[in-house]
Nucleic acid binder design. Structure first.
Lengths: 352, 352
DNA sequence: CTCATGCCTGACAACGTTGTCCACTCCTCT
DNA sequence: AGAGGAGTGGACAACGTTGTCAGGCATGAG
């Protein structure tokens, strides 16, 4: 009956045969709490006892179960990051910066991509809340964040980055999209352009809307009319972007003259636009929002309105940890400047 | 004494004032387990009761505490990903692919960067194990993974990707670095080059070593000697890479003739090498390991040995979940082919 | 030699959930 | 009308850890 042929189990084995503090205590011949003390480096344990416990720990391959610890302590030492796409070269450094700050505060990072889908964002955020992350850094995709209210009330610190929260008050770290776009368009105007196109992201995305607003402001300030065929907002898929660019360059819409310059609304749009022959052949000027690797080595080198994604991430994470440390002043909005980097493509003079 | 001046708490409020199932049960006038049943969609609850419970849940803003759930159930439905640098354009799609697979299996992704530091990798992995992730996908930085043995024995599924595990048997998903590099060098040789340089990553990194081996194999197969000044392994910082490239191009070492072609060992090295004037002016041929965005738009367009980072990630994650579903055959090594994409820079003929 | 004073140590409850198991109600069939 | 069954609801223990608290065992002083 008794399976004494089996080696005596050094520990009770559950699903995945994990020793617990109880097992360690039994093996070391000490009490449960003493093991806890050793594991957590608490004072009040004789060197000799500690040694015995350590030996038992290594012998059994014990590893503290943080789920139980978290349950007991109430803090998880982890933060959640929800962004649009981990693989987007704009968000990758942002995400890395958040991770660095988290690491400096001894927290782990749990992250997920919303794929620009509000519902998916919501699911992800709530899953993270169920895990009881201490805080959240969110690049929002949805247009209503009231679902977060109970979570925030329950003490989950929340910082939005790149785009503000919708319908709730919350901390946000943003780039000055409006000013950046306006400066980019003004740059093109200063180089003689009067018919300028704007190709941007989906209009429901805050940055896209702001950049469009900046575009219109710059045009208006220069007294230039905007033909609506020069404005194209939509998904960043290459086919759409290319089609819109070519349409604007050919002035295919009724009554519209072709544009002589383009402002592209983000790095995804820009890297597609640089493939358009007219850009490569310097028949049209181009200013792109967001800097990107190798922009200076293209033909022509690409003039950009640079943001600092890593700084956005760092600021957001730092603000988050300030909240976690108790700062409870009113939600604040941090705005970071953009920087126009002239490289050539934006200085192409108008042709026609 | 009794703080009856305060509004009666709808729920006991701990650190962060979170209602529990108990609170929901009290408010809905049902038993604890009934709430659990509703929350988990288990059968055996009258529509009317369910409605009452749902109302209580929304009224209190209840959210299940997954720490407690995890503690009870033993599975966390989360996997860990440890890589070198989240922001590296090679690892970003890999990481995204792992996330997609995890999502398809209803698991969350916890990740961290090792910064190519073995000790940091170890800390991160063990922290993830303490969180009781169900499985791990690791791009290893360290050179000894025996520290993982107790974890693997305890049932943590582990898959290595991009580089194999050191000193333990474990699943691994790799690209054929050796063959890729050999093919790249053969390509250069076929275009008439006889003096070819190799600039790679740190020699302790498996892929760097393999690519160097491929380089030597191709040279040997063509009966070409390798001057040791043509081989430079080291960190991927731009200064070092540029210096090594220029040194090789000038044949500055005693008795060494300058190289007429370069093989660069990964995307970080390549994007630095393309800035070297000799490359841009087509005075030296270049083949780069790893494809990268805009490679085809540079001058000259860059010939690369392409890997598929997203496929690496997907295969690794799929293998991981197959393990989690119980597959316990011997550790396997999956090798994915590379693809040489000639674009111009590798077809530059030798000059001198 | 006895007692006070520390310092260690361990028993026990609690964290919030889920699984087991039993009790109860309401219906239907005889 | 009573018995059996199906279906619903709830009490209770357990998951592995940490905080509280009380007890034990030296050591030193009186």
């Amino acid at each position: 009956m008794a399976d004494t042929t089996q080696p005596a189990h050094p520990a009770r084995r559950r699903y995945g045969l994990r020793p617990t503090m109880k097992d360690v205590a039994a093996r070391a011949g000490v009490g449960l709490k003493t093991v806890s003390r050793v594991v957590n480096g608490e004072p009040g344990v004789t060197p000799d006892t500690e040694r015995r416990v350590q030996e038992a720990i290594t012998a059994l391959g014990f590893r503290r179960n943080d789920s139980a610890r978290i349950l007991r302590k109430g803090r998880t030492s982890s933060i959640g990051l929800v962004l649009e796409d981990l693989a987007d070269p704009f968000y990758a450094p942002l995400s890395r910066a958040v991770e660095e700050v988290a690491r400096a505060h001894g927290a782990l990072l749990i992250n997920g991509s919303s794929a620009e889908d509000g519902e998916r964002e919501r699911e992800l955020v709530l899953a993270l809340c169920a895990r009881r992350v201490d805080g959240l850094v969110i690049i929002p995709a949805g247009d209503d964040h009231r679902y977060l209210e109970p979570e925030i009330a329950a003490g989950v610190a929340t910082v939005f980055v790149d785009r503000p929260a919708a319908r709730i008050e919350a901390d946000a770290v943003l780039s000055r999209s409006f000013e950046g776009a306006r400066e980019g368009v003004a740059h093109l105007i200063a180089h003689g352009h009067r018919r300028i196109g704007f190709i941007g992201d989906l209009p429901r995305i805050h940055t896209a809307a702001e950049r469009l607003r900046g575009y219109r402001a710059a045009m208006a300030e220069a007294g230039l009319p905007v033909d609506e065929s020069w404005v194209a907002l939509g998904p960043t898929d290459p086919g759409r972007v290319r089609a819109d660019a070519e349409r604007m360059l050919e002035g295919r819409e009724p009554a519209a003259e072709p544009v002589t310059a383009l402002l592209t609304g983000n790095n995804r749009v820009t890297v597609t636009a640089v493939r358009v022959p007219a850009v490569r052949e310097r028949r049209v000027a181009l200013v792109g929002f967001d800097d990107f690797e190798l922009a200076d080595l293209l033909t022509p080198p690409v003039t950009v309105i640079a943001q600092e994604p890593a700084l956005l991430g760092r600021k957001a994470a730092e603000l988050l940890f300030r909240r976690l440390e108790g700062a409870d002043d009113a939600p604040r909005r941090v705005e970071l400047p953009t920087r126009l980097i002239p490289r050539g493509s934006g200085e192409v003079p108008p042709r026609s």
